[in-house]
Simulated scan of single mutants.
Amino acid sequence: MRRVRPGAASRATGEERALTSVAAGERYAEPADLPRLWHITLSVSGDETPLTEVRRGLEQLAHDHPFLLTSRYANDHAEIRYWEEARDLHDAAAVALRLWGEHRQTAKLPPWEIVGLEVIDRQTYHQRLAEGYGPPPASPVGVHPF
């Protein structure tokens, strides 16, 4: 059996088909279940840990989680900022709340607990920056002491 691309049979018979454009109109709505970008700020804290161990763990986390923008750390707390793609805020927050625990063994992170979480959509993030408040853009990207 010979397979033919859609539309190829009509060309073979001499029929010409024209492509037409259909306007979306006012009734078009963006599907609600498409993933969106969310800016995550995760704060963790716990018992003092040598700075070299904290830095090494955060660098490994950045390697394991390539969307990590920046981490700031001290010997008893850290802040991780990154972009997450998720359908809605609930999904983004759920992923963020699992990040530290899921990577604690593989990245050898300190046994700290999550003490803060902020999840905002991309529009809110850029609006805050434009208004002069909110976290400054993550620069330089990477792992840095407070």
Rank of each mutant, 00 (worst) to 15 (best):
D33V: 12
G57Q: 00
P136T: 14
E113K: 08
Q105R: 12
S71D: 10
E53H: 13
A138Q: 06
E113W: 04
G7V: 05
A130G: 13
D121H: 07
A23V: 06
F67C: 11
A86N: 01
H39C: 06
S21A: 14
E15H: 14
P111R: 01
A8G: 07
T124A: 15
A18H: 13
R72C: 07
W112Y: 02
F146V: 09
A62R: 11
A93E: 13
H90M: 12
I80E: 07
S139Y: 13
Q60W: 01
Y82G: 02
L19H: 08
D64A: 10
L129N: 03
S21D: 08
G57T: 00
L19P: 03
V119E: 00
E59D: 15
W100Y: 05
A9L: 10
E30I: 12
L99G: 01
A93Y: 04
A78H: 02
F146A: 10
L117V: 07
H77P: 00
A74V: 01
A24I: 03
L117N: 10
K108W: 01
T106S: 14
R11E: 15
L117C: 08
I40R: 12
A29H: 06
E79M: 11
A107N: 08
T49S: 04
G7Q: 05
N75I: 02
V141T: 13
M1I: 08
A138M: 08
S43G: 05
G57E: 00
D121A: 05
R72F: 07
E79S: 09
L89M: 08
R104K: 02
A94L: 04
G132H: 11
P111Y: 00
P135M: 11
A29N: 02
L99D: 03
T20Q: 15
L37I: 06
V115K: 06
G46A: 04
R2Q: 09
T124E: 15
G7M: 05
S10I: 09
T13D: 07
V95N: 12
V143Q: 01
D64N: 13
A93R: 15
L129G: 03
H90D: 13
E113F: 02
Y125A: 08
G132L: 09
H144L: 13
A23T: 10
R98A: 09
M1T: 13
S10E: 15
G25D: 04
R104T: 05
R104S: 07
R128W: 15
E59Y: 01
A86W: 01
Q105P: 01
Y28P: 05
L61D: 00
S43I: 03
Y82M: 07
R11Y: 13
L34W: 11
Q123E: 14
V119F: 04
D121M: 04
L51A: 12
Y125S: 02
E102V: 05
L61R: 07
F146W: 12
T20W: 15
P145W: 00
P137E: 12
G14F: 11
K108S: 10
L42Q: 03
L89Q: 14
A62Q: 12
T13R: 15
N75H: 11
G7A: 06
R104F: 01
R128C: 06
P136I: 08
W112H: 03
H144G: 09
R3H: 05
L97A: 04
L37E: 09
E113H: 05
A74E: 09
D88K: 04
A12K: 14
